[in-house]
Design a protein around this nucleic acid. Sequence first.
DNA 1: TTGATAGTTCAATAAACATTGAACATAGGG
DNA 2: CCCTATGTTCAATGTTTATTGAACTATCAA
Lengths: 123, 123
Amino acid sequence: MSRTPPHPTREQIELPMVLDCLSDPIRLAIVYQLAQQEPVSSELCCGDFNGLSGKSNLTYHFAKLRECGLMLTRVAGTNRFMRLRREDLDARFPGLLDAVLKSAAKDADRLQHVVECDVLEAD
Amino acid sequence: MSRTPPHPTREQIELPMVLDCLSDPIRLAIVYQLAQQEPVSSELCCGDFNGLSGKSNLTYHFAKLRECGLMLTRVAGTNRFMRLRREDLDARFPGLLDAVLKSAAKDADRLQHVVECDVLEAD
DNA sequence: TTGATAGTTCAATAAACATTGAACATAGGG
DNA sequence: CCCTATGTTCAATGTTTATTGAACTATCAA
């Protein structure tokens, strides 16, 4: 399998791309889950998100999150560990990530609903 | 012409929709311009954005901004006056709008570039 | 009442997006 | 060395999106 995939530099991170990335319920859920686990372990691997969608669809969303600079992928054996690029994001857009995460926390039920509905519709 | 168009209530404003709306460079520019003018006059009318795109395209973007709860449209004669729904947004997602606006201000040159390029490509 | 101004509506189009499943690649444990 | 678990790649599909121009509507002012 390929080595570490490409990531944008801090300066290459663009506001519209970040917002667009966060506007998808699945991706927002990924980022949210990543942020919640942060105090415990800063990393999660693909499998930890299997509840959100199918594997190949997740690969697609992970790529988007990586390409827009929201998260970092580290390859270790057959696993890919991802973590939020908190420092870079805070440096680039101070307060933005926190505001989004706080908003997502506030609406957690609603957002959860959205994802659940998507999963149910998929029957 | 029709009366005041429909707006979502404060509670109907959804995070993913707001983020998606702000992720388009033209819409972000509209919101930004609206926010900048806020201290002077809280309202601007459609024509004030003619630099950003064609009229019918702007109508499209205004509708999106209205439908997701980002701005309010008031009809007055042949004009439509728009203003940011700051109070509702701050109540719903505290700190979010400010963080986005601050980020946009920081990248104003870059974002301006994007819009200018779009305009130039349209030749 | 006529003309100009401000903005909408509609249909067409091209591009981007999210989702799926099947086939594939890779690493690690028995 | 094979088997399994983990995740990727690819092609196909249907949907949504942004953008255009032409035709239209409404209001105001002369």
